[in-house]
């Protein structure tokens, strides 16, 4: 009886030591869930969620401090993906959130730009080229359309231009059938 208890205790201690060692040796740095959430977020870094970027929002979602329906650029599809990942219910956009907009890029009216660099400081992805008292311009291919540069401009020379569909970006549409009226008889 006693020997059985001792054997069981010895096994428990040995296994506990293995587990404890593994926990230290194979420790995961950071929260892997944050990266998974961050991968779903659209990386516009626009701050519409109330956090200073996509990563902070992802961190807040992972810590269950933020709702999953606070990212307008991600659209309803983004909410759906987050819901699937986190095992939560889909939640429509809150009333306080801006409606998702068509994808657009910022455009600087170069005739009006005074070269104040305020927009450069605001751009979260370094997509504006320019220097003090030099004309600024948007690097359209890098612009995420976050609109953060629009407000700081003292001469209101930045506008958002919706990206139009081109032949190279055109998508086949979901098949829909035209219904033809049938005479009621």
């Amino acid at each position: 009886m006693l020997s059985a208890l001792l054997v069981m205790a010895a096994i428990a201690i040995a296994l506990g030591a293995v587990l404890g060692f593994a926990a230290i040796k194979f420790r995961v740095e950071g929260n892997p869930l944050v990266d998974k959430i961050d991968a779903i977020l659209p990386q516009t870094q626009c701050g519409q969620c109330g956090y200073p970027g996509c990563k902070p929002y992802a961190t807040a979602i992972a810590a269950e401090e933020a709702d999953i329906n606070r990212c307008p650029p991600g659209g309803e599809e983004g909410i759906q993906k987050l819901a699937d990942l986190l095992g939560k219910e889909f939640k429509p956009f809150g009333d306080d959130m801006a409606a998702p907009k068509a994808k657009s890029v910022a455009f600087i009216d170069e005739n009006t730009c005074i070269g104040c660099t305020l927009c450069i400081q605001a751009c979260p992805v370094d997509a504006i080229a320019g220097a003090a008292k030099q004309m600024h311009t948007i690097i359209a291919s890098e612009c995420t359309g976050c609109e953060l540069c629009v407000a700081p401009c003292p001469v209101d020379c930045i506008s958002m231009v919706v990206i139009e569909e081109k032949i190279t970006t055109w998508k086949w549409k979901y098949p829909v059938y035209a219904l033809s009226p049938v005479s009621a008889s």
Binding site: D38, Q43, Q45, P124, V125, T144
Partner: peptide, 8 residues
């Protein structure tokens, strides 16, 4: 998005 994340 990956490029934007990297740049940010």
């Amino acid at each position: 998005a990956d490029i934007a994340r990297e740049r940010h």
